[in-house]
Write a protein that binds this DNA or RNA. Structure first.
Lengths: 239, 239
DNA sequence: CGCAATCTTGAATCATTTCAACATAAGTGG
DNA sequence: CCACTTATGTTGAAATGATTCAAGATTGCG
């Protein structure tokens, strides 16, 4: 259930058996959601956080004109809204991008962790800080990378994140997103995403079709994206 | 020294005298930096976090072509890089925008707080989560708001954040930024920022000149920006 | 199989950038 | 305190990347 979360945390630091148990017992309930289901709405009061076990989830914000910006994508093993533990009401909504299985972690169990397991607390805090680092990389993409580089960067990011949890092959991964959803991540229109995907494919960098990302030339792709995996904090910390 | 930080934390939750003391004693040293000084570089190993006491600071990322994206602006009372406590090496650099006074908080003192003061730990965790909420709002701006609305939104955000720490009047505040730096926040060119500022001024919304922001019509400005202060988490949490 | 969602392409339009020139303000040394 | 220098702000015109609108093709689903 929490195996992918453990993979990710252990890539960074070690976990004692007690800590592992605390995490395991943090999950009060497991729920299944269908695709395209908004299961947390902006502003709603929460008393639990959600651990993604299977499927893809995104967090998004809307403008009054109907424009949507996806602020983050989550893969299995991610705490989707661990930050709701301190924020209580979120500034964004959360929806599934594919059918999902999620673990419900009541906030009082997290409070207990903060009272008794400081090292685990720091690890959980760390994981919300990694989320913020992802946001910053997206800010850079949205603010300064052009459509091609921005799109390439997202594909690189997901390759790296999925690899850690054993869900990517060296040459690519499944990505159950529509071009419109991709556009909502990238701050572009679906039409322009379509054209950009074509260019990426024709240049022999990545091919995204039929919900499958095929990395054609990883090195060249990462170069176009100016991708550097350090910001993902997936590697053991080095002092 | 930490008065503005306390103002901000108390706007959200209460703090015991012991917690207040722990924060106060967290500061090992106070440093002064001149304007435009990058005092933390991306990737460098850190063993302290920085509390901003006076002046303005930003966190930024660069691309190889020299394009810069500012990911966050910090006002007095903000922990600029509390996240370096768990990340150790940052994915961005940090520089002053004006002459600054900062407090140096060694990571081992933060570790001690996590071991002995769980409630204060949660409050500090909360404050890094608010940073992430700001990043998300900027993602929305960068991805979906046009230049006018995006610029208006930043002015609204800073008005609200400066008010909490007593650094804004009802009609505006000092903002020691150049148009080029503003452009680096907004994902625009300095030329376009200049034109956008002119439109905002001519429409009677805000006037930014000579390092001073004058809010001409707050209601109309917030409407153009689609500004809602909830994402700042400046208000006491409501259950 | 048939309908709806998604993808694809072209052409016109629009927001923003680029380049370049000039104006103003701020900072420094004599 | 003025003159000189550099940084910052302003404006116009042309170019560009992305959007919009619209139509047709393809895919996936009940």
């Amino acid at each position: 259930m929490i195996e992918k979360l453990l993979l990710k945390l252990r890539a960074r630091d070690s976990l004692s058996p007690v800590e592992e148990t605390a995490l395991r017992e943090g999950i009060a309930e497991v729920r299944d959601y269908p695709a395209d289901k908004t299961f947390v709405r902006e502003g709603e009061l929460l008393n639990f956080s959600t651990l993604l076990i299977e499927g893809l989830v995104c967090r998004y914000k809307d403008l009054s004109g109907g424009e949507r910006q996806i602020a983050a994508i989550h893969v299995p093993g991610d705490f989707v809204d661990l930050h709701s533990f301190s924020l209580k009401r979120l500034d964004h909504s959360i929806m599934t991008l594919s059918p999902c299985k999620v673990g419900i972690v009541p906030h009082d169990r997290l409070t207990k962790i903060t009272e008794t397991l400081p090292h685990l607390t720091r690890l959980l805090w760390f994981s919300t800080n990694v989320d913020a680092a992802l946001h910053r990389e997206w800010e850079l993409s949205l603010g300064r990378r052009d459509a091609l580089s921005r799109t390439a960067h997202l594909f690189c990011e997901l390759q790296a994140r999925l690899e850690v949890v054993g869900m990517a092959e060296p040459d690519g991964y499944d990505l159950p997103l529509t071009q419109t959803e991709l556009a909502e991540c990238l701050g572009l229109t679906n039409v322009h995403v379509n054209r950009t995907l074509k260019v990426l494919r024709e240049r022999g960098l990545v091919d995204f079709r039929g919900h499958r990302v095929t990395i054609q030339d990883r090195e060249a792709l990462e170069q176009v994206a100016e991708f550097n995996r350090a910001f993902l904090y997936l590697d053991r910390r080095v002092f």
